[in-house]
Design a protein around this nucleic acid. Structure first.
Lengths: 296, 296
DNA sequence: ACGATCAATGCTTTCAGGGTATCAAATGGA
DNA sequence: TCCATTTGATACCCTGAAAGCATTGATCGT
């Protein structure tokens, strides 16, 4: 038995006429009759009650008809869908992103892609930049939004946003809240809270070199991994922090953000392995390009 | 494309090794390789990433694998089920019955059949005896419980219950409630309620001949079609009625039933067309035989 | 560098399945 | 009643899809 046999069966079940059914199958009646006989023989079931004048379905045939309709439908759909998957119109895209980007480009990117490719299931995976890098090379992620960490020959990169770092502090911070221009010198004595290099290398190195360029070693007192935690610790008065400007829009009431002199810049990029086999990735990258914005 | 090709694909997708997959398909490697190439060509989709050393699924291939598993499963199931239907183990059985039998044999028959053939969907259809006869010959019903109406050469018949008719009346009926033996003579002046001959020929003719054998013409004042209605009308004091004994067990509080002298008997039978093509019918009839009981 | 492994290719062979001709049974009109 | 027509089944032939065998070519480990 095969789907071809099912199609023969369906043709006869719908026409109840060997000649016309054979015609529908683009063949002559005699081999068609033989195929029907063969189907009944291999199944061991009489599907049609027939004489030289009339053809009718047996109860078993009626039941088989429903099942065949189902199977043939699913069969066609499977063959159609595999082409869609190959074209990136359907399937799955595992998308990683760091918390820093969750409030800026990610929602827009996800929404526009979902509109463009509604049949691709977007699997979102919130990770630290280091984890993202590992998962991209391991192939566990198809694409990710992270900080540009420089050299990455096996990855294709699309710049999404170039963000300046701003400083956040309590509104009642003394004496910083009153200072006009804030730069490394003004922060020399401040307690700084920043993510560890092992978690966010690009961010941490931007912060570090901001200070070291002026020969200053920042006084980093706490190194939480989550950006959310950093903001909460600043709110408790445990220090100040340098965070991307896009995160400054939703600070709590007790906090304020200020621009920095010669503020360090960080590139938020969309990345994917060059060797990716997932055809859904290319349009994802295209949409990334279309929402590029150099400055926020 | 055909299910055979899907099976080839699945073999390779599961083993990721042309030689072993070919072996599983009971063929040699070269034609197997060609078949895989053919599948990819006709679908226009690369399903495997391969070189002379490694075989791996593409994303499209991974997706296709799930779909194929589904389709092949449903395909096998359809071929299995059509055999079950042909054996009467699965399918549908349209079963008609008259209200007179709903309280006696039908529940038992239905329950025991459902236990024996859980995969056969019993379509119950409550009808009048006349409708049942028409639907049996029309083939709209596969089997039915009705009164034996005698000659029916195209039907097979199993006697289920031989029921005597009893008379029902209001408990305060005067003078009948006080009479010892009730027969045609005692009912000569009574108003009788009975189903019309057009609806229940066997029942009505049994009632009629019970009287006419003694030269009495019953005084039939009302002819409702539903047995339920008859009982309600008797309860309202509009007359008395002769009904099968099995219906007398659930009379309302204001009613009573009495035996009749030389009470007419009616055979409740299970019937099905001899020419039935529905294989589910035979065991249904067998179960009917097994619950035969001559007297209730 | 060499052998082992494994998929791809070339060529041959076979049989499933299609085509043509024909038969046989049933129906309907003359 | 009989013949023509319709329709499914049978007989026989033939083609091509697909299988087998032998071999090649590429890759990896020793």
């Amino acid at each position: 038995m095969d789907t071809r046999h099912m199609r023969y069966f369906m043709a006869l079940a719908e026409t109840l006429h060997f000649g016309r059914a054979a015609e529908r199958m683009n063949m002559s009646q005699p081999p068609f009759s033989r195929q029907i006989a063969m189907i009944e023989h291999t199944l061991g079931v009489k599907l049609f009650e027939r004489n030289s004048r009339n053809v009718a379905l047996t109860p078993a045939g009626k039941h088989f008809m429903k099942d065949c309709r189902n199977v043939l439908g699913q069969f066609e759909e499977a063959c159609r869908d595999v082409r869609l998957v190959a074209n990136g119109m359907k399937g799955e895209l595992r998308f990683g992103f760091m918390m820093h980007a969750a409030h800026s480009v990610v929602p827009q990117l996800v929404q526009r892609y979902a509109e463009a490719r509604p049949d691709v299931r977007l699997v979102l995976d919130e990770r630290t930049p280091t984890e993202i890098d590992e998962m991209l090379v391991a192939g566990t992620l198809d694409a990710a939004v992270t900080f540009d960490c420089g050299y990455a020959p096996h990855l294709q990169t699309v710049l999404l946003v170039r963000e300046r770092l701003r400083i956040i502090m309590r509104k009642d911070h003394h004496p910083l809240a009153a200072v006009g221009q804030i730069g490394p010198e003004e922060l020399r004595e401040e307690k700084v809270i920043a993510a560890p290099a092992a978690t966010a290398p690009a961010l941490r190195s931007a912060i570090n070199s901001y200070f070291s360029a002026r020969g200053i070693v920042p006084h980093v007192v706490l190194e939480p991994r989550l950006q959310h935690t950093i903001i909460q610790l600043v709110a408790k008065g445990l220090g100040v922090a340098l965070i991307p400007s896009s995160l400054c829009t939703e600070l709590g009431t007790g906090l304020m953000s200020r621009a920095l002199t010669d503020a360090p810049q960080l590139d938020v990029v969309l990345r994917a392995p060059i060797t990716t086999k997932n055809p859904a990735v290319s349009t994802f990258m295209e949409i990334g390009k279309s929402i590029q914005q150099v400055s926020l």
